[in-house]
Write a protein that binds this DNA or RNA. Structure first.
Lengths: 216, 216, 216, 216
DNA sequence: AATGAATGAGGGTTCATTCAT
DNA sequence: TATGAATGAACCCTCATTCAT
């Protein structure tokens, strides 16, 4: 946990350091990240670094926690808007906010997210928590609800695996589909995203094959 | 690329080094892997290390190439058996061999596989190639074929994303489902795996919802 | 020499700092003592430290001077009581006050005392003075007197060495003898101490062996 | 304990390092000794230093052990020559060899010897052993013997304290006496030393005062 | 071909000291 | 006067790499 001195810094300086650290960890991995590079790039002295953090571990945990908070607050705020929709409508909302969140992440943040589950030899219980996908919690809740109302009639584990992977697939799809045009353009227009989501929601509903007039 | 001296070693010694290196990279990442630990654990001298490899990069590429070859040869051999099945039968075979391959990997090999796509600052064109999922090539071919025969009536990119993620999801599902019993047990009995695969194939065919008597 | 600001502090705060410094030097030696630890333990800020002292050297000299003053004032006050005793009676008084002084010291003060004569690379003339055993001055005076009156008939240097080591030996003896019972108990009862002193005074008078017609 | 690589060095290099280390610890104390200075002065690289020792602690223990071995082997070899002398003759021999040993020490070695008993925060059991004066063991044995034969009629603890301090006093006396002339000269002529020893032996026998014609 | 000691650049961390508030 | 953040020199130690044997 960063020391008080870090939180006392003015926002600009603090965010510069966080940005630099994020990039450092994303580019070199947890074990390859160097204090030297971080202090050089963020324009602080080595001495200051150690007045802000106990070491690179500390900084890493901070970066990851930031990411975690960001995610939880983002998804949390979207969740409040769910209201009285049916199951698949709720998922549509979830996927939309998931995709929007994912898009809000920088390349470096995405890299860190992917890195987390495979970091070994890291003795921080805090990180153990962060390793879990935040949305798992939301999804599990929603799925259980949908099963109890009969909206989903499927094996609980199966439903969970399929649904919790859908956000990622939607994003993969969007990236793939729009390789040529600037990907940012795609995200800026929400209808593009909604279209993609509906494609996957239909899958969840009916499957890939066009049968008996479904999926027309 | 390892030097000739490395390939001249007797198999046992060579594989010891490879095993140690695999574990080193899996545990500490590309940037955190140390020559010292590798030579200590594999019982060779530092001098010898540099007679086998130009450095850790060299060793890393070798390890990853081994993994790639393993995958390609495994899937390749399964592919030959496909014959004249229909589209979904072919996929059933692909998934089965994918799951079997995945299960054949050690923890360390799995970690390396996951690590590959997020390694930056690595100036090896060889690795760029390895980063691609090997099965993509197979899948893309199969999907194009199925689209041209009309067996799949869906957006090509959509089909690709959905199908190429299915193997992973099957494995996730198997792990999740069998948390309690030893996971090894599950893989040993092929019928367990086939059952899981059929679940996902049904999804691809019909979706999650029970409609008109489907999915009872 | 501490700055005026230090002497302006209230007694309690000043003595806290002195106590902490004493312990720091006793535990880590002159070269190993750290400003950081001192300010942390005494609850003052780093900035304040440098407003009180020019650095650790300054503080060290101050601590040692305190110790020196303590010794001189203690022995000085005892000396006044000597009056018109004969030579050995005077020594008895000297030893008694020496032992009492020694006992009045804390463990840390004793350590500092022992440390002083072996500190090198210390460019303070003040300390050079402190390195000398304070009692040397008193003893040399007394011995010269006793030699001139004929009370001691021995080589001056020999007498000096033997006598100036006697205090230490008395303390060693007391510690050794009373290993089992709490050593504090011993010092509290002055008769214990006097008994020990007389043992050593007898040595000075007659030697170790108890024989009629001495030592054949 | 130094690593094998250190003992594999040629004698000259090894002794250079030991000499430098001795001086470093003598001049700056245990906590103030720096690797940097040691490697600079002994002309080895930092890397090499850490191939010889695990750190400065390791080196310190080695230096002290060397000193201990030196002392024990020296005194041990002298002890063998004691033969069938009487008590005080034996002590004469002991003191002589003690003085000769002490004289054989360099200034730095003497400083280290004095430093040992006051080093704190040192978690080496080995050093705890070294802190004990080696001669204590020899003296205790001799004294017990003399008490049982009646050659000494005194309190055991008293005898021990007095006798075990005599070597030091003899040396103090020699230094004091010969301040003016080069002290080395004094030690070179054994008769000077024997004379001093007899002075102290007489004290042990008869005390300082001249009585009934003794000590004339 | 095998070894492992030697090396110095560089990484992590601490420290004494300064200085703006 | 009191404070404590800022700083960079210097410290301890590791590492990749070389090279003589």
């Amino acid at each position: 946990m960063p020391k008080e001195t870090f939180y006392n810094l003015d926002k600009e300086k603090r965010e510069k350091i966080e940005r630099v650290a994020l990039s450092e960890f994303a580019n070199f991995g947890f074990h390859g990240a160097k204090v030297n590079r971080v202090v050089d790039k963020s324009g602080i002295s080595k001495g200051s670094f150690y007045q802000y953090f106990t070491g690179m571990d500390d900084l890493f945990v901070h970066i990851v926690e930031n990411l975690g908070k960001k995610k939880i607050s983002f998804i949390g705020s979207e969740l409040k808007l769910l209201g009285e929709k049916d199951f698949f409508e709720k998922f549509e909302s979830m996927f939309l906010s998931g995709v929007k969140f994912y898009y809000s992440l920088s390349e470096d943040e995405i890299t860190i997210s992917k890195m987390l589950p495979i970091i070994k030899n890291l003795c921080s219980e805090k990180l153990e928590v962060m390793k879990k996908e935040a949305n798992q919690i939301f999804f599990e809740h929603l799925i259980d609800e949908a099963i109890s109302t009969g909206e989903i009639q499927a094996d609980r584990d199966f439903a969970f695996v399929v649904i919790s992977n859908t956000s990622k697939q939607i994003i993969q799809y969007l990236r793939r589909k729009n390789k040529v045009m600037g990907i940012e353009k795609v995200f800026e227009n929400e209808s593009n995203v909604k279209e993609a989501i509906s494609l996957f929601l239909d899958l969840l509903k009916m499957g890939l094959t066009k049968k008996e007039g479904k999926n027309e």
